[in-house]
Design a protein around this nucleic acid. Structure first.
Lengths: 333, 333
DNA sequence: CTAAATTGCACAATCGTTTGTGCAAAACTA
DNA sequence: TAGTTTTGCACAAACGATTGTGCAATTTAG
């Protein structure tokens, strides 16, 4: 069913039909009687305009490309959910790409999305390269979670430094001195900021000597192996700070396997919160990221960019959720 | 950069350029020299054809619509990941819709996707209505997870009956007699089949009297409240069978709150497996669904339908993963 | 009653591709 | 050399919508 067929049925021109259906009847002085007829027939025949043709003509697709490193990571799944919901509210649909944390797939995805003429791009980049997100990208781009400093690519993310500083301070206040940090993908901004937050907190409390950083990516396996490695060291830490939810899972697995009791023998705190954290034994103390906020703000920002407005990057504050995986250590006198 | 500009640059017709770029040079006898020039220039100017125009002309978008009830549920997130990966391999992109388990949103999404002329639809339906998936849908549709019996809508799903039967039998073999089942959304096929599997196992072991079914949807809150309600009954069950991962989480939360020890006082088994199940204390015995298989088979099926082939629905077998949340009960003599 | 203004709609171009067909020029045949 | 075949490419019409503009018919103004 095309607009032409609909017009033939009504015995009028496609022009008139189109104008009525796009609500421009007044602007073009279509009589109310005619308009009525058009709407009725359209309704009755259940006509829906071919969006492809529309997109071509209007040079606008009402489609946003969403590139995410791993949709099976609940952090990103939640982000995707919020983004999809917000975009739907505003009449856009989302073309989803999962880059599998592979920069090459990410670059290809950008190309694919651009050739499909998306109106904008929402990208949680792998974080290794940025050129493909800035050069020759004719549409607005907003970065999620990971970003690039000094690159003038707008982003929305958690204040990682703040969160890590808070988590580390919390452990220190509880009497911990030997706190190890198990990091995620090095070179990515959130990771670097979390590490810096951790280091700053340690330094500011005179614990520079005790700074211990292990790990190399955001996977459960990394958490698992780094923990085992840390436990094997002569001076085992009394607390672990896992820089994302998957790493934290790996930590728990290793600790469980080695029969370390949390929090009696070792405390654990995670950056990033998941619903099941409260069900673990012990329930897991965590830094909760404002995921919904990130999604909403990113979409808003994208719309402002599409309206040719200027935007400023945003860092949203995370929150500490106290549970049972952290125990105080008696102060040595 | 359009093909017209590219053609002007090369001082030839768009026809020729198009034919080279679509690899039809031989078919239309374009000289190798010309072809070479075209490819070089296209490369150099970094030309990518406007897919919208292409879609319109070819009456094909290479886009598949994926409708999912809740992308933040790890079960569906994993499904989405597999589907995206498989489709990408085959040159398609995915337009993602999250129906939030709301039939109305699902219906709207179908309309939106159809007007965008997707080549096919992959739908994990809410399960309440099916008309919008069959009537007037001009493209192939494959259902995921939930489906409709006797409706001739092809689907790929877990063999829920089999899985539930297995889980229940497992509990019975361990000596449990009072097993309660906490169900998900009633009226949806997986739920009904799981319930039936549970009931059959009970009946076949002479435990018809003990059949106890609680709950009403696939949420954590449902698991939580149903469990509390079950614990309040005069004869509390010795084992719980949660019909999905979120319900299981709710069960654990309630049991924890009420200080019920798993598995000493009560055993728990879940339909659907999640990575963190092994980290819970105790680790959670579960029926693992072949999620990757579902995604892959669904995509294959969709392609067969697009090739106008016939397909048969598929039920994939789940697997029991034994962990520590189920304990044997000493047989009463 | 005539001229001007308004009303109501249709023509045709356009968005950027792909493709059936046509037509010279080149190559071949006899 | 003249006729036929082959080679190499371009014209122009789609695909299905939107929209600037034009032009009758009707209404209003004077």
């Amino acid at each position: 069913m095309t607009i032409k067929e609909l017009a033939r049925e009504l015995e009028m021109s496609t022009t008139t039909v189109s104008r009525v259906l796009t609500g421009q009847e007044k602007k073009y002085r279509i009589s109310e009687k005619t308009a009525q007829r058009v709407r009725e027939m359209a309704n009755q025949l259940d006509f829906a305009p071919n969006q492809i043709a529309r997109n071509l003509r209007l040079q606008k697709t009402n489609t946003i490309g969403l590139i995410i490193p791993d949709i099976s990571n609940p952090f990103f799944a939640n982000l995707a959910r919020t983004v999809e919901e917000e975009l739907r509210r505003r009449g856009k649909m989302v073309l989803l790409c999962d880059s599998k944390d592979d920069t090459q797939i990410e670059e290809e995805s950008v190309q694919l999305l651009l050739s499909r003429k998306v109106d904008g791009l929402l990208v949680a980049p792998v974080g290794e390269k940025w050129e493909h997100l800035q050069k020759k990208v004719a549409v607005p781009v907003v970065l999620l979670d990971r970003y690039f400093e000094h690159k003038d690519l707008p982003y929305v993310t958690t204040d990682s430094f703040f969160g890590a500083y808070k988590a580390t301070s919390f452990l220190i206040e509880k009497g911990h001195r030997h706190i190890a940090c198990i990091q995620g993908l090095t070179g990515t901004t959130p990771n670097e900021h979390r590490v810096k937050g951790y280091e700053s907190a340690m330094q500011n409390h005179g614990l520079s000597q005790n700074i211990t950083i292990a790990g190399s990516d955001y996977s459960m396996i990394n958490g698992y192996e780094s923990t085992k490695e840390l436990l094997a060291r002569p001076e085992t830490p009394t607390a672990l700070f896992a820089l994302n939810n998957q790493i934290a899972m790996g930590c728990m697995k290793a600790l469980k396997e080695y029969d370390f009791s949390i929090p009696d023998e070792i405390s654990l705190i995670a950056f990033d919160e998941q619903p099941y954290f409260e069900l673990l034994s012990p329930s897991l103390t965590a830094i909760k990221q404002p995921m919904e906020g990130i999604g909403k703000v990113a979409v808003e920002m994208l719309f402002e960019l599409m309206d040719e407005k200027k935007v400023a990057p945003q860092m949203l504050k995370p929150m500490l959720i106290e549970r049972d995986s952290v125990a105080p250590i008696p102060q040595k006198s």
